[in-house]
Amino acid sequence: MTALGFLYPGHSAEDDYQRMEHLLGSDIRLDVIHTDIGEDAHRVDALLEMGSPDRLAAGVEELRLCGAEAVVWACTSGSFVYGWEGAHDQVRDLARAAGMPASSTSFAFVHAVRELGVRRVAIGATYPADVAELFAEFLGAAGVEVTGVRGAGIVTAAEVGEWTEEDVRALAQESDAPEAEALLLPDTALHTVSHIEKLESQLEKPVLTANQVTVWEALRLTTRKVNAPSLGTLFTKQPLTQA
């Protein structure tokens, strides 16, 4: 049994992890611990507080008791808002507090893009435009070329959690660009796991979504490779790099 731990802010789309656990097989367990988000706002000051060391450390003991082998901070905006170096510091602090390998959803996107061997990506974010641009800057620091950024202007994770499949597909279609080799949907509050196959068929390219890459990153940290076609190209492609 491989036990994977996730620190998930609040309650929005955590049922995506239940779906993924079912799809991955009986020997992989996904343990989701909810962290206190403070103010639910896609605003820089609120996001910095959401991802603060004290808030993340509060969930670590419960993960250890679950027997988790690795932990991922399952929040994109609450990691990239710290910038490239600051996000590294956040992950190092989390690993030290947890006593196990650690990462975040922001780095999961970087590693997943490298795994697919793509260089140019489009971003379809639920966030306000200024926050979405910070994600583009984070990817740029990793050497990923962003062809375009669309911010939907949604302020709270609670509202994002209510989005329908139609909403998700519309965001994907509006955000894609012909020159992009993959589309990224970076909000862990967004339900996407049930839609990835349809999105990839619709756009005819890989689609990386926040909860999808978060689980893939935890598997990467434990050196597990799982073939799960319903979770998209990322879960079926043979590895190209060791990120």
Rank of each mutant, 00 (worst) to 15 (best):
A41C: 06
E174H: 02
V113N: 03
S79Y: 07
E217Q: 14
G148R: 13
M20T: 06
A177W: 04
E159I: 01
R92Q: 08
A158V: 06
G232I: 09
E49I: 09
S12V: 12
Q242R: 11
A108P: 00
C66F: 12
R55I: 14
Q90W: 05
D89Y: 10
A102K: 00
L134S: 13
Y8P: 02
D176S: 12
L30E: 03
E200T: 01
S12L: 10
V160F: 14
S194C: 07
R29D: 02
V226E: 05
F6G: 05
V149Q: 05
C75G: 09
E217W: 07
A87E: 14
G25M: 03
G99T: 11
E204L: 02
T233E: 11
A228L: 12
A182H: 01
N211L: 09
L94K: 09
E204V: 06
L208M: 12
T105G: 08
Y127V: 05
A180M: 04
V155E: 12
Q212N: 07
L231F: 04
A41W: 03
R220S: 14
G153Y: 03
E166S: 05
A95N: 01
W163P: 01
E181P: 00
T2E: 11
V32N: 12
R64I: 08
L56M: 15
L240G: 03
C75H: 09
E174A: 05
V193P: 02
T209D: 00
K237F: 02
T214E: 03
A141I: 10
A129Q: 06
D89V: 14
S26N: 13
I37T: 11
T222P: 00
E165T: 02
F107E: 11
D167C: 00
L139Q: 04
L65C: 04
G67H: 12
S175G: 01
A172K: 05
F135M: 08
V160T: 15
S52G: 09
M50Y: 03
L7N: 03
E200A: 02
L65M: 12
G124A: 01
F135V: 05
T209W: 01
K205L: 09
C75A: 09
E181K: 04
L184C: 09
P9F: 05
L190K: 07
A189K: 04
Y17E: 11
A218T: 02
D45K: 13
D176W: 13
V91D: 15
L203M: 03
V193Q: 09
G59W: 13
G117V: 14
W216E: 06
L4R: 05
Q173R: 15
T147L: 07
A228M: 12
L190D: 08
